[in-house]
Each structure stands twice: as C-alpha cells, then as structure tokens.
C-alpha cells in the first residue's frame, strides 16, 4: 500500500516541489543571480517530471546488455527512451542559457554597479 503510493507519486511530488520552490524564488527575490538560481531549480524540476512520466515500477534501462533484454515475449519492459533523449538535450541547452543569463547579469552589474532589480529600476528613472 505504502510502496504503491510512493511508486505512483513520489517523483511527481519531488518535481512539483522543485518547480514550486523555484517559482517562489523567481517571484520574491531581488538579486538577479538569485533569480537565475531559481530558474535553474525550475529546470531541474521540469526535467525530473519528464523523466518520471517515462518510468514504470518494473522498468529496466533502455540499454542492451547480455542480461538486459528490452522486450520479453513481445512486450516492452524498459522505461520510455523518448523523453529521456529529449531531456538529455534540454540539460545542455539549459547550461548554455544559464551562461548567457549570467553574462547579461555581469554586464548589468558593470553598468549600474548593483544587482538589485529595484535599484536598477530606480536608476533607470
């Protein structure tokens, strides 16, 4: 009973919590770098969600070895490889966009001397 509940829900609870925590950071913090940290946490949660919907409790890895057969009696016994391949590329894109956001943050700091979004807004006036 407990095990079944955990198998059905625990990864979704984890991904939802990560997205919620990241959203909270993005909405409340004022430092630009902290906002980028929040975006990274949201990204982790989304990737976890996409991999979790590809999984089922009796799954094996989608890799052939001498002992790991992907199909038994014509039925698939692996985790779904398609969302995994999508997430694999999404992680690398996430690194690139994070670096670009950090570079923009560094440029903002060199121009305004601060990373606080409110002070930047005041300086704009």
């Amino acid at each position: 009973m407990m095990q079944e509940f955990l198998q059905n829900w625990i990864y979704f609870i984890a991904s939802l919590s990560l997205v919620g925590v990241g959203l909270y950071i993005v909405l409340t913090k004022e430092n630009i770098f902290r906002i980028i940290v929040g975006l990274n946490i949201i990204e982790s949660g989304t990737n976890l969600f996409m991999v979790a919907i590809a999984w089922h409790p009796n799954a094996v890895m989608p890799i052939y070895t001498a002992t790991n057969h992907l199909m038994v009696n014509g039925k698939v016994v692996t985790a779904d490889p398609l969302p995994q391949s999508l997430v694999l590329t999404a992680i690398v894109i996430g690194l690139g966009t994070t670096a670009l956001a950090l570079a923009i943050g560094i440029k903002i700091f060199e121009k305004y001397g601060t990373l606080d979004v409110r002070k930047i807004k005041e300086a704009e006036k």
Binding site: A54, H56, N58, A59, P62, L70, M71, K75, V76, V77, T78, A79, D80, P81, L82
Partner: peptide
C-alpha cells in the same frame, strides 16, 4: 506499461 512506452523506437 505497454501502452505508455513509445514502442515504435524500440
């Protein structure tokens, strides 16, 4: 299980 996995690729 069998309905959710994108069997085509495998």
């Amino acid at each position: 299980v069998n309905g959710r996995v994108s069997r085509l690729y495998i």
